[in-house]
């Protein structure tokens, strides 16, 4: 049976379409006004000319771009390594911490202590302690390079965070799910692996993706240990030239990665129905 919209339905559809057009026009206008006001304030400021020359020098920016891109490549590699290691190790730690076996008590205590310490320490401090403290031990097998030590420090801190996210996700799985799995005869380990962890991962994906995005930026902190990443490369370019444009370029490069990444994460969350853009899900209007 085909449906021919009644005049009432047609009129309502037209009204809603008009509403949408008006909403769009209002949004466009308010955005335009806001941007225009911001530009006006900046351009008419007393120091605008000098600021422009020192921070927005296009020629200088192009000149330093290759060095900064090379630095960014390092950031991206560090980012991928830290993401993979802290997600995998974080999940393992969370599983260990949520086990009930008495044999594993020392391990649980150790994990709890590790998480407490590294979640409580500022990342910058961990970087400095690892970057300068570990080499002073003069261990022959320990690489002294800032890249490795910096990556290690970031991993130490972020693994503590991801372990806690996973733990919260595991604890949030409804007890009835475990009961059902055990009633089917699955062992404790099988229940964890096949029922609890998959649900925990699904529940915590938005929070974890957030962590992934923030790792991308924090990979720049290895620069304080002398690793020549995008930030360090910009610092080198600024030194002696009295032109701060490289910092702006480095910032743009980071945004070039992180903005598409956050958009992709949002789109993914939206598709999976975790979107924050629907305040009243389940209510039509």
């Amino acid at each position: 049976m085909t449906w021919e919209p009644s005049p009432v339905a047609v009129e309502r559809a037209a009204f809603r379409a008009g509403r949408r057009r008006r909403s769009f026009a209002v949004a466009a206008l308010s955005t335009l006004v806001l941007v225009a006001a911001a530009v006006l304030v900046v351009v008419t400021s007393p120091g605008w000319e000098r600021t422009r020359d020192a921070f927005l020098d296009v020629d200088r920016g192009l000149e330093v771009l290759p060095a900064l891109l090379e630095g960014l490549w390092l950031n991206l590699r560090v980012w991928v390594v830290t993401v993979v290691v802290s997600l995998v190790v974080g999940l393992l730690l969370a599983i260990v911490r949520t086990t009930a076996s008495p044999v594993l008590f020392p391990l649980r205590a150790l994990v709890a202590a590790y998480v407490d310490v590294f979640r409580g320490l500022p990342l910058l401090l961990v970087l400095l302690l690892v970057g300068f403290g570990l080499p002073s031990l003069r261990l022959p097998w320990l690489p002294g390079d800032g890249v490795y030590l910096g990556t290690l420090a970031i991993v130490l801190t972020y693994t503590a965070y991801t372990a806690e996210i996973f733990r919260a996700g595991i604890n949030a799985v409804h007890p009835a799910q475990v009961t059902a799995a055990r009633a089917l005869g699955l062992t404790r380990a099988q229940t964890t692996r096949r029922v609890v962890v998959p649900q925990a991962v699904r529940n915590t994906t938005p929070a974890l993706l957030n962590t992934v995005v923030s790792l991308q930026k924090d990979s720049g902190l290895i620069s304080i240990l002398g690793a020549v990443d995008a930030i360090r490369a910009a610092q080198i370019a600024v030194t002696g030239a009295y032109n701060f444009t490289p910092y702006v370029v480095a910032g743009l490069l980071f945004l070039l990665v992180s903005i598409p990444l956050t958009r992709a994460v949002d789109a993914y969350s939206e598709r999976r129905g975790w979107g924050a853009t629907r305040p009243a899900a389940g209510v039509a209007r």
Binding site: W3, P5, S6, V8, A9, R12, F15, R16, R19, G282, V283, A284, R285
Partner: peptide, 20 residues
Amino acid sequence: LLEEVDDGVVALRGVDVTDP
């Protein structure tokens, strides 16, 4: 009014409430 209707009228005391 918790579901969007494709067509038709829901009236309360004679007033069409499905009107957007």
